[in-house]
């Protein structure tokens, strides 16, 4: 049952991912990304990682894709098909990706070809919460500092500085913010 659910979600994810990287309409790529990420969240659910699935939907679909759509809007992305969205070297890129798939795929099959995932108990957010605050406290705190730094960095980068004197000001303010 879980295998069937996982296979369906995985197939949807692969099809949506193929559309994301090949479509000529850039807004369609962003919207198919929602399907791909949601299907991957379904895969997480089939692997009994319900908390990760919910976080995936909240953060990826709720925040990241919306951010991408806003960026498309702000960069005046056209909604009509763009033939130049993929470069001329895309056959070489396909070859690189195919060779990488063969290498990684054979490695994975050789290493884990006959392993089985036993039916795992239903995942609980309590387990992840306990692990975060008991074992992974230091990475958690470092991650919060990193989020703050990314926040300040994004604000500094997106400030409108038309005059030449203003970049110095933004650099000094970012230095103060990092401290």
């Amino acid at each position: 049952m879980t295998t069937a659910l996982f296979s369906i979600a995985g197939a949807v994810a692969v099809v949506a991912a193929v559309v994301v990287v090949t479509t000529r309409r850039i807004v369609h790529a962003a919207l198919w990304l929602v399907v791909a990420l949601g299907a991957v969240a379904g895969c997480f659910g089939a692997l009994h990682a319900e908390f990760v699935a919910l976080v995936q939907i909240l953060v990826y679909v709720g925040a990241i894709v919306v951010l991408v759509l806003f960026a498309l809007m702000l960069t005046k992305a056209p909604t009509n098909p763009l033939p130049a969205l993929t470069t001329r070297r895309s056959p070489f890129a396909a070859v690189v990706a195919g060779v990488l798939f063969l290498l990684l795929g054979t490695g994975v099959v050789i290493a884990f070809g006959n392993k089985k995932i036993k039916p795992v108990p239903a995942g609980a957010a309590a387990d992840v919460g306990t692990a975060v605050f008991r074992v992974w406290v230091l990475p958690f705190e470092v991650l919060s500092v990193l989020l703050l730094a990314a926040l300040i960095g994004a604000i500094v980068l997106s400030q409108r500085s038309g005059k030449l004197s203003e970049p110095d000001e933004t650099v000094s303010s970012s230095g103060k913010g990092d401290d």
Binding site: T3, F6, S7, G10, A13, V14, A17, V18, V20, V21, I26, A29, A30, A36, V40, C43, L47, V68, A71, L72, T75, A77, L82, A84, L85, T86, T87, R89, S90, F92, A93, A94, V96, A97, G98, L100, F101, L104, G105, V108, V109, F112, G113, K115, K116, I117
Partner: peptide, 27 residues
């Protein structure tokens, strides 16, 4: 176990293709 691992490999390679072949920075 091979099922999720192969799916992950496939998604990763599609991502590699997208990074190498796409022109728009947002894609």
């Amino acid at each position: 176990l091979i099922l999720p691992l192969l799916l992950a490999v496939l998604l990763f390679c599609l991502g590699v293709y997208g990074v190498l072949a796409r022109r728009n920075a947002i894609t």
